[in-house]
Design a protein around this nucleic acid. Structure first.
Lengths: 214, 214
DNA sequence: TTGCAATAGTGTCAAATTGACACTAACATA
DNA sequence: TATGTTAGTGTCAATTTGACACTATTGCAA
C-alpha cells in the first residue's frame, strides 16, 4: 500500500500536574535545553505504549491518564532531519508525586505552564495546544478528576478548576454543578488541617475513567 | 534527539460529502478491497500537504476542508510491516461534485457511511471515529458549512444536520439557533425548484472558516 | 381560473438551566 | 472564650431551551 519513507518517528508527552495551586509541566533537560519527555517509537511498539514508556523511563511517572493530542510533522521542525512526533498529554494526580520525580535520564524539573523556559523544537507549541485542550475538556468531561489525588475536598477541586481556567468560580454554583454530575462520592472521612473547619473528603466514583457530560 | 525507526508512515483521509440526503464517504478500490484515499508521506512533505495531495491524486478532490483526526499505529494493523497512519477527514461541499469524481488512480466510489463495504486494515474504525468527531463538532462549531454548496437554503442546511445527527430537528428552533450564530447571510436570491414556494438562498459569511460557538 | 400539492416561513409560552448573591457552622489557636 | 479561617448551604431573577401550528408562495393539473 505504501513505500517505506525514511524518517524519525517519536512521541512527546506533556505531563501536567497541579503543584501548589499552579498548573505545571514536567520537563527533562538534556545538555542546555529543556524538552518534553519522549523519544523514538520502537518497531512493533504501540504509539500509546511508547509514550507511556518514555514518560516512565525519563521521569518515573507511571499509571497516569494519557491521551493523544496531535501529530506534528512540519518539515523543518527538526534541523536537517525529517522528524514526526505523535504528541500526548498526561495528567498526573497530585497525590502520586512523592516529592520530586526520580530522574532515570538526565535532570527533570517542573515548570509553570505560564512561565516555561525555552524548549527545543516546537515543544512550546505542543504545550500550548495541550493546555487549550485540557481547558476546553473541563467543560464537557470529568477529566479534571485525573489531576486529583485519591481523596480530595470540594474546595480543592474548585481551586484546580480555577487554576486551569484562570478565573474564579462561584462556590455554590460550582458545588451544585459538580455534584449534579454524579461523578464523585463522599468517603465519610474529613480532611483535618489545622486551624479551620474540616472539609468532607470525596473520591472519584470511577477512578481512571473520563466521562463526557452534558 | 532520537534514533531513526524504520517504518511506513502514511496518511489516510476520510472524505465526507452529503449526497442525496445521506452522509457518504469516498473510497478508492485497489484490486478487490476498498480503502480510504491516502498513501505514503514523502520526505520533506508536510503531513497536511501529503493528505491533501493523495486525496487530489486519487479522487480529484481539492480545496476541501481538511482536519487531522487521529494517528493510528497499533502493531499488527498492517500485516507484517510496521505501519503508522495519520488520519484526516475532509468535508466536500455538495456543489463541488461534478457527477462522479475523476479517478486518477484505480476506481473510486461513494459509499453510505452506514453501509460501508469491507475496508482494508482498520479503515472502518477510522471512518467510525471521523463520523463521531464530525457529529460532535456540529454542536459547537460552524463546521457543517463546509459540507454545503456556496448557496443553500435553510431547509437544506437543516436536512444536512438531521442526516449527520440521525434525528429530526424542529424547524423553527433550528432556524432560530442558526441565525443567532450569525454565520450565514442572505444572498437576496431565491431557490427556484418546481412546484413549490421558492426558498431564500443563504451563503456562509466566512467561507472556509470554522468558528467555535457557544 | 381555480384548486391542490408541496415546501417556506414565522412567534409564543412553559420549563429548565444558569448565574448572582450572603450568611451560618466548625474547627484550631491565642 | 474570642478570633481567625475555611466549609457548607438555598433562593430568586434572567436566560436559554424546547414544544408546538398555522399562513404564504409557488407550479401544475384539473
Amino acid at each position: 500500500m505504501a513505500d517505506p519513507v525514511p524518517l524519525t518517528l517519536t512521541t512527546d508527552v506533556v505531563p501536567f500536574a497541579i503543584r501548589t495551586e499552579r498548573l505545571e509541566v514536567l520537563l527533562v533537560g538534556r545538555s542546555v535545553d529543556w524538552r518534553l519527555p519522549g523519544g523514538p517509537i520502537e518497531p512493533g511498539e504501540d504509539l500509546d505504549v511508547a509514550a507511556r514508556r518514555h514518560l516512565a523511563e525519563q521521569t518515573g511517572l507511571c499509571q497516569v491518564y494519557l491521551e493523544q493530542l496531535y501529530t506534528f510533522g512540519q518539515p523543518g521542525r527538526a534541523a536537517g532531519q525529517r522528524a514526526v512526533t505523535v504528541a500526548y498529554y498526561a495528567l498526573v494526580p497530585a497525590g502520586s508525586l512523592s516529592g520530586d520525580p526520580v530522574p532515570l535520564a538526565d535532570r527533570t524539573g517542573w515548570a509553570m505552564v505560564d512561565a516555561l523556559p525555552t524548549l527545543v523544537l516546537d515543544h512550546a507549541k505542543i504545550v500550548a495546544l495541550a493546555r487549550r485542550r485540557l481547558a476546553s475538556k473541563l467543560a464537557y468531561s470529568t477529566i479534571v478528576l485525573q489531576l486529583m489525588p485519591e481523596r480530595f475536598t470540594l474546595s480543592e477541586l474548585q481551586t484546580v478548576h480555577e487554576t486551569i481556567l484562570g478565573e474564579p468560580l462561584d462556590k455554590r454554583n460550582f458545588r451544585k454543578r459538580i455534584l449534579a454530575l454524579d461523578c464523585i462520592e463522599t468517603t465519610g472521612e474529613m480532611a483535618q488541617r489545622g486551624g479551620r473547619r474540616p472539609a468532607r473528603l470525596f473520591r472519584a466514583k470511577h477512578p481512571g475513567q473520563v466521562d463526557f457530560v452534558k
